[in-house]
Design a protein around this nucleic acid. Structure first.
Length: 576
RNA sequence: GCGCGAGUAGCUCAAUUGGAUAGAGCAUCGGUCUACGGAACCGAAGGUUACAGGUUCGAGUCCUGUCUCGCGCACCA
């Protein structure tokens, strides 16, 4: 039950009737605890257009709206706010339903969608670096959340597996490993390999020629080059797999659908744009000019789909990918997880695709942008020597630090130290990223993300472990409380219960707005509500039936926390 | 130069997308506790939301202008 939406619907209809046109009730959780549980703000704008006073309209609304049994108290406050305090019995009823629901009260969508989530997308010419972290983490959290909500999620890893730099790499591979055909090639340091190839490319004209010839051969379908290319990709993907495994993301080999997959369709894309009458030649390049991208002087920045030398560009590939996703995968919504710098590119590509009729009206293409990752102090994220930081090294360090912290606090954990270090260290990296509004740039700090205080993964994991400890001490299994009805007698119990019930509206907001930070904020609030309960309401020592009731509240809290964290891709542990 | 994004407490970030007295955490200062994990909890202090105008019942949020920073600006992705 999405309480917010439920109240919104209950109030919007009578309000619209009174206002004489369709208006929203604008329902939100109360800004302050003293105001109640929810508030409706829609009366004031509605009164304006209806030509009556807000307070009068509010009174009429309360007279006609049917919230009997749902709200315990309805007040009109200030210029026309409606404050709603929910009925205790109703809350208990909802909470008991939540406790008996595997899905924690999150309603399935009336019309489930097929959602393509395009994320991670490393360049296979190099190793994954910190620049891929946000796309991978945020995209994975969204894929998990959308799937849980009830949509069909298709992950797409649009890897960079094509382009001129591969000529250089293949030429270098053949030079360095004359035995490459025999297979079993391993390149320990892909970054190094790339750098050396580039160096040679710049220094040795003969090698540069060989590299260019390799590009031509590869594009021409030369079997020998093709085999070397596949071998190289395989090796490069191995590096990615290691990162994905460490990170614990859903991405699998079957999700990889790289740039090269669209090669055969690029000429068709250009031909179809031509058929649609959108193609113009300019300075030898084939372009789409869209008036909406004109500057003040009327000069239009075109979408270039074919270079003057005949080569295609990433706009062309992206158009082909859109057709594949819409046409073959039947996507109704496509999310693109890339940094904000590509906003213009996607606006142009989406507009071109629409203009060309490649996308039905009701299919949504959404660029989900995020800010860049900065080092402490606000500078670019670099190694001490100024190079790019490999993602695998960063993750290793997070685990190392987490291990040290955990062992220092709890030396008995040596047996599980590696696993705990992985869960806490990786959880910290993910949570730190996800807990911020993805649009803003983000300052990376091991110290802050691994802190036990504040809105961090270790704090959340600790809160969870503490609840687990209650069940250990009580000698009962958490699972045995599944489906047990819950009562909310104390104020702290009521506050916790209400917060638990807000899981549904939070999850649905994350899924529609693509903002995982809303879930982090919710979980942190939930931990706070639990703390208030924990400090004021003894559980194990309480007399029955209070004891069982409180254990049931603890069980539901633990289950909600665990599910919430898992939707962020973060694991929990029973002891830490 | 043009376009896009950002500017909120000393620091790192929120603010339910136009709602009431702008909230957290860290750091600082003070306090609590023989109850279920002190890796805890409670409180105080800290703000002209970059600046100047405007729109309206109401603006951190929308509009105009200015300043600062970041990114992008046809044949890289």
């Amino acid at each position: 039950m999405n309480i917010r939406r439920y109240i919104e619907e209950r109030l919007a209809e009578p309000l619209s009737k009174l206002a004489g046109r369709s208006v929203p009730a604008i329902v939100a959780p109360s800004a302050r605890a003293g105001f109640g549980d929810y508030q409706a703000n829609g009366v004031m704008p509605a009164a304006k257009s209806a030509g009556t006073s807000p307070r009068k309209l509010a009174e009429q609304l309360l007279a006609t709206a049917n919230l009997a049994g749902v709200a315990e108290k309805l007040d009109i406050a200030g210029p026309g706010f409606i404050n709603i305090r929910l009925d205790r019995a109703w809350l208990q009823q909802q909470l008991s339903a939540m406790a008996a629901d595997e899905h924690l009260g999150v309603d399935r969508p009336v019309q489930p969608q097929t959602v393509v989530v395009d994320y991670s997308a490393p360049n296979l010419a190099k190793e994954m670096h910190v620049g891929h972290l946000r796309s991978t983490i945020i995209g994975d959290a969204l894929a998990r959340t959308l799937g849980f909500v009830g949509h069909k999620v298709i992950r797409q890893n649009h890897v960079g597996d094509w382009g001129t730099q591969f000529g250089m790499l293949l030429a270098y591979l053949k030079l360095q490993r004359p035995d490459w055909q025999s297979g079993g090639i391993h390149i320990a340091d892909l970054e190094d390999f790339y750098r050396q190839a580039k160096q040679l490319f710049d220094a040795d004209p003969a090698f540069a020629d060989a590299a260019r010839a390799e590009v031509v051969a590869l594009q021409g379908g030369n079997p020998d080059s093709r085999r070397a290319w596949e071998m190289f990709l395989d090796e490069s993907m191995e590096h990615c797999r290691a990162v994905y495994k460490t990170l614990g993301v859903l991405l699998a080999d079957s999700d990889v659908h790289g740039e090269s997959a669209y090669n055969d369709d690029l000429a068709n894309v250009v031909a179809d744009l031509d058929k649609a009458g959108l193609l113009k030649e300019s300075q030898g390049a084939k372009c789409v000019f869209l008036p909406e991208f004109a500057d003040k002087d009327g000069d239009i920045t075109p979408v270039i789909v074919q270079k003057s030398d005949g080569g295609y560009l990433y706009a062309t590939t992206d158009l082909a990918a859109i057709r594949y996703r819409v046409g073959t995968l039947k996507a109704q919504r496509v999310l693109y997880l890339t940094d904000g710098g590509q906003a213009l590119h996607f606006r142009m590509v989406f507009a071109a695709a629409r203009q060309a009729g490649m996308v039905p009206e009701d299919v949504r293409l959404e660029h989900v942008p995020f800010g860049v990752m900065l080092a402490e102090g606000g500078g670019k994220f670099r190694t001490r020597t100024g190079g790019t930081v490999k993602l695998i090294d960063l993750l290793d360090e997070a685990q190392k630090r987490a291990r040290a912290i955990v062992l220092a606090k709890n030396p008995e954990l040596t047996a599980e130290a590696d696993e705990v270090a992985q869960i806490v260290g990786i959880g910290a990296v993910k949570y730190a990223d996800l807990s911020q509004n993805r649009n803003s740039d983000y300052v990376f700090s091991f110290e802050k993300m691994l802190a036990m205080e504040g809105n961090t993964a270790p704090y959340m994991q600790y809160a969870y472990a503490r609840i687990s400890s209650i069940f250990r001490k009580a000698g009962v299994a958490r699972e045995s409380f599944f489906g047990r009805a819950v009562e909310l007698a104390q104020p702290e119990e009521r506050a916790l219960g209400l917060k638990l019930l807000q899981f549904a509206e939070t999850i649905q907001a994350v899924a529609s707005e693509c903002l995982p930070n809303l879930l982090c904020a919710y979980l942190y609030d939930l931990a706070g509500a639990f703390t208030g309960f924990y400090e004021n309401c003894p559980v194990i020592q309480a007399d029955e039936p209070t004891r069982t009731n409180r254990l049931a509240l603890c069980a539901l809290t633990a289950r909600t926390m665990q599910k919430g964290l898992s939707l962020l891709g973060i694991r929990t542990i029973e002891q830490m």
